[in-house]
Design a binder for these strands. Structure first.
Length: 204
DNA sequence: AGCACGATTAACT
DNA sequence: GTTAATCGTGCTC
C-alpha cells in the first residue's frame, strides 16, 4: 500500500512541532524499484540563525541555502568526513529551520536495510542519524528534493500518532560546544514504544 | 592557502 | 570509559 506524502502544510510550522509530529510517521526510500521504509522514532529541531546549534547560524551559504527555501524539502549534509545526515526543512520561506531525523524502526525492505548496515541487529541498525542514512542509501544526491511531491526517491507517509506517554523530550545531543540557552533547549523528541508494539500497523 | 572543527560511529581499553 | 577515522565547510590570514 502506498499513501500520499505528508503535505506542505505539515512542514509549514515551527520546527519543534514538526519534530514531535514526525514521530510515528513513515520515512520511505525507493531504491532500484524497491521500497525501504522505517517508522521515525527520534527527531530534533534546529531553529533559525539565532540558534547557535543550527547550521543557519552562519547565515545563508551554499550549504544552508536549502533551509531558507520552502518547507518540505530535504537538507542533507556531510560531516565528520564520512557521515550523511537527513533533515526536513520546516517553517516559512526565508526563515531557516529544519528537523534532523535521528532514528527509525525499519519496517519495509528489511533484507536490503540489514545488508546496507553490515547485518547488524534490527534494533541497532537505524538508531542514529548517520546509520539511517547508510541504511536507506541517502547522500548528497537527495539534498534539496521535495518530500511532499516526489514519490521517486524519498518521501514521508502518514503513520501512527504516538501518545505523549511514549515520548521523552529533552536537550539535543552532540552539540556540547554550543552556548546556552541553545544547549539546553528541549528540542529533542524520542519515542520509546512499549514491548509488543506493532510498528507496521496503521493505527494503535 | 591554511586551519579547526563537526547535529557521528565503531572499535577499542 | 576513550579515540581514530576522514573531508566539507566557514573562518582567518
Amino acid at each position: 500500500m502506498t499513501l500520499s506524502p505528508l503535505p506542505p502544510a505539515f512542514y509549514d510550522r515551527p520546527a519543534p512541532a514538526v519534530a514531535r509530529e514526525l514521530l510515528g510517521m513513515r520515512l520511505v526510500r525507493r531504491l532500484d524499484g524497491q521500497r525501504l521504509a522505517g517508522i521515525i522514532l527520534e527527531a530534533e529541531a534546529y531553529l533559525g540563525e539565532e540558534d547557535q546549534a543550527c547550521h543557519a547560524r552562519a547565515g545563508r551559504t551554499p550549504r544552508t541555502a536549502v533551509m531558507y527555501g520552502p518547507p518540505g524539502r530535504t537538507y542533507v549534509y556531510f560531516t565528520y568526513g564520512m557521515h550523511w545526515m537527513l533533515n526536513c526543512v520546516t517553517g516559512r520561506q526565508d526563515e531557516p529551520a529544519a528537523v534532523l531525523i535521528r532514528s527509525i524502526w525499519p519496517v519495509e525492505g528489511l533484507a536490503q536495510i540489514l545488508h546496507n548496515r553490515h547485518n547488524l541487529p534490527l534494533d541497532r541498525c537505524c538508531d542514529g542519524p548517520a546509520k539511517l542514512c547508510q541504511a536507506l542509501a541517502i547522500d548528497r544526491r537527495l539534498n534539496g528534493i521535495d518530500l511532499t511531491q516526489s514519490q521517486e526517491d524519498l518521501w514521508i507517509e502518514p503513520g501512527q500518532s504516538l501518545p505523549d506517554s511514549w515520548v521523552t523530550i529533552g536537550p539535543r545531543v552532540g552539540i556540547s560546544s554550543v552556548p546556552e540557552p541553545w544547549l539546553s533547549m528541549p528540542w529533542r523528541y524520542l519515542a520509546c514504544p512499549p514491548q509488543g508494539w506493532n510498528p507496521a500497523s496503521p493505527q494503535e
